[in-house]
Computed example of a mutant assay.
Amino acid sequence: MELARADLISRARAGDGEAFRALTEPHRRELQVHCYRMLGSLQDAEDVLQEVLLAAWRGLAGFDGRASLRTWLYRIATNRCLDALRSASRRPPKEWDIPGVEPPEPTRLGEVVWLEPYPDILLEDAINVPLGPEARYEQTESISLAFVTALQVLPPRQLAVLVLRDVLGFHADEVADMLDTTVESVKSALKRARAGLQGRRPQATALEPPPAAGSPAEEALVAKFVSAYESGDIDALVALLTDDVFMSMPPLPLEYEGLEVVARFCAGLFGSGRRYDLVPTRANGQPAFGAYLRAPTGIRHGTGLYVLALRGDRVCAMTRFENSVLPSFGLPRSLPSPPEIGMNPHESPM
C-alpha cells in the first residue's frame, strides 16, 4: 500500500495528472464537507476546494511525508478557508419580497444570512471517514444546520481549531502544525470556541433526540408535515411543532422563535391563498423538501427548499432557502401540471 502510494506521489510530482487524482480523489468529498463547515456555503466550499486541489498539485514537491497526505490536504484546506473568511464579501441580507403577505415582526434578525444547505447525496462518502481520538461529535450532528450555523459566528481561528479538534479529532500538536502556531495557542482557542458554541446551540435536543433517519417514526412525522403544509391546514401544522419552534429564511435575516409567532407566519402565508406541493429530499442529514407554488396555469414554480429539524415526535425548526439551491439537490425549477385524476394520460384535457 505504502509502495503504491509512494509511486503515485512520485508520478504526480513528475506531472502525471491521473496519479494526482488517484491520490486526492478519496479525500475530495470529506474536504468539501470540511470547507462547508467552515464557510457555511456549498458554493463557497466548492470554490475553495478547487483552490485547495490546485495548491496541492502545485505544492506536491513540498510534501515531505512527515504527516499523512490526508493531514497535509487538511492543512491546505483549513488555511484556504481561513483566507476566504478573512477576505469574504458575504451575501448581503435580502428584503422580504412575497407580494400580498406581510410577515409578523421577527423575534430577532439573524447574523448568518449566507448559510446554504448541503445535499445528503454528497455526504455518503464524507461522514463515514475514520475520526481521530479527540473527536467529540457524531458526524451526523456535526453537519446539521444548527451546528453549522453556530460555527459561523465563531472567530475564524476558533472555528478552525474546533472543527479540527472536536469534529475531526486531530491531536493538538497536529492542529498546531496545520495552523503554524503553538499547542498552547490551540488549547486556548479551543476552550474559547467551546464556550462560544455552547451558548449558541439549542440544548433541548440532547434531552429528546430526533427519530433515526429513514425510520418509521421519522417517515410518519414527515408525512404528517407534508399533508398539513400542502393542504394549508394551519391547525394540523401547529400540532406538529414544538413550543419553542424556530424558523429562519437565509438570506432573509428574519428569525422567528416560539409556537405563536411561527403559527402567525404560516397562517399569513396560507391565508394569502398560496398552496404548495412538496418534493422530498434530504439536506444536512435532515428531512428536506423542494417547495413548489401552484399557479393558475397548473405549472408549479419552485420557490425554495425547506429543511426540518426534528425533536421526538415534533418539528423543532424549519429553515427555508431560496430556489437557487434546488439544482444542487437535483430538483427542477418548476414542475409540470399534474394530470387530471382519472384522465387518460394520452387524452387532451380540453
Rank of each mutant, 00 (worst) to 15 (best):
Y229P: 08
P93D: 00
P26K: 09
T303G: 14
L60I: 09
L207F: 12
V161E: 01
I121P: 04
S142R: 04
R201V: 15
V163G: 00
Q158I: 01
S231M: 10
H301P: 01
L207M: 11
L190E: 06
G298I: 01
A61S: 15
C266M: 15
A204H: 15
T149I: 12
R264Q: 12
S231H: 11
S89L: 15
I98W: 13
S41R: 06
P339Q: 07
R86N: 12
P345Q: 07
L8F: 14
R21G: 05
A61F: 12
V101C: 11
A150L: 01
M178W: 07
D180G: 11
R86P: 01
P106D: 05
L259Y: 07
Q50N: 14
H27A: 06
A236I: 09
R300N: 02
L23M: 12
V52C: 06
V101H: 12
A213H: 05
S231N: 14
P211D: 00
G132E: 00
G62L: 14
T205K: 11
L207N: 06
S227P: 04
A135H: 03
L190W: 00
P119M: 09
V33P: 00
D16G: 08
V52W: 05
S272C: 05
S328Q: 11
A160H: 00
C266F: 14
E141C: 06
I127V: 15
R13L: 14
P296S: 06
P130D: 02
L154C: 00
C81I: 09
A223N: 07
A77H: 11
A88N: 10
S10K: 12
N284C: 15
S337Q: 13
M247S: 13
E95V: 03
E2P: 10
R275Y: 01
T242L: 07
R29S: 15
W114D: 05
P211F: 01
Q32V: 14
K187P: 00
R28Q: 13
F321E: 06
G273T: 06
R108T: 11
A204P: 13
Q198V: 05
